[in-house]
Amino acid sequence: MSDDTAAIQEGAKKSGILWLTLDRPRLAWHAWHDGAIYLVTGGEEQPMPGLDAKDRVHVTLRSKDNGARLVEFEAAVSVVDQGEAAEAVAVLAKERLNARDSEHLPERWARESTVWRLTPER
């Protein structure tokens, strides 16, 4: 594992938020799973305008302790088939704080939201 890969993995695991450069820097909650960052948008979840038009996005991970920039990188953007990625969706649901229907998140997301995979480019 390269130093960059290790820094990305460590930063993504330690902090549940990141910044995506879209129309402007946008704060997003996420989960790290199986070598990638997963996030959910749409419906009652976080809006990420313009993400659907991108095949790559600039990601900034910051320290949970002091907010300092840990690492920046480009990531490939893809929509996740929620049925095929049930394990990743379960990890995301576990990280989703303060949901009104936490026990039914995967079902609601399947109806009204999009799950994204951001794969760091090395």
Rank of each mutant, 00 (worst) to 15 (best):
Q46M: 05
H58A: 09
A53R: 15
P47W: 09
D65Y: 12
L70Y: 12
D34V: 07
V91C: 02
R96K: 11
V89Y: 06
A53K: 13
G43W: 14
V89S: 07
R96L: 04
L92G: 01
A88W: 05
L61D: 00
V89F: 06
T41F: 09
E84R: 15
G35I: 01
K94C: 09
W32P: 00
V79C: 13
V89P: 03
A88Y: 03
A75S: 02
N66M: 10
V77I: 08
A90K: 06
M48R: 05
V57A: 03
R56N: 13
R69K: 15
R56G: 11
H30D: 00
S78N: 08
L51C: 06
V40C: 08
Q82W: 05
L70R: 15
A75N: 02
G43T: 12
T60I: 08
G67E: 07
V59H: 03
D101P: 04
G83Q: 03
R62K: 12
D52M: 12
A85Q: 09
I37N: 00
L70G: 10
F73R: 05
L70F: 11
P47S: 11
K64H: 06
A75Y: 01
V89H: 08
A85M: 07
W32R: 01
A86M: 10
K64Q: 04
P47A: 09
A76N: 12
S78F: 03
D52L: 09
K54N: 12
K64F: 02
S63C: 05
V40Y: 03
N98D: 08
D65E: 12
R62M: 07
V77R: 04
Y38G: 03
E45A: 11
R96S: 03
V80C: 13
Q46L: 02
V80D: 10
E87W: 07
V79W: 14
K64Y: 05
A93Y: 02
R62P: 03
L92S: 03
A90V: 09
V40L: 10
G42T: 02
T60P: 07
V79S: 11
N98R: 09
W32F: 06
R96D: 04
V89W: 02
V80F: 15
V71N: 01
T41P: 04
M48I: 08
G67C: 08
A36I: 00
N98Q: 06
K94F: 12
G42F: 03
E44G: 11
E45R: 09
V91K: 01
A90C: 10
L92F: 04
E72I: 08
A75K: 00
E72G: 15
V91Y: 02
W32H: 00
V59S: 00
K64D: 04
E84F: 10
I37R: 00
A85I: 11
A99M: 14
A31I: 01
M48K: 05
H58N: 07
K94D: 13
S78E: 11
E74M: 14
L97E: 15
L39K: 00
V77E: 07
E72Y: 11
L39Q: 01
A93H: 00
H30Q: 04
E72S: 14
A99Q: 14
T60N: 09
D55W: 06
M48A: 05
H33L: 05
R62Q: 06
D52K: 12
D65I: 07
A68T: 13
L70W: 14
R100D: 10
L51R: 07
S78Q: 06
V40H: 00
R62T: 06
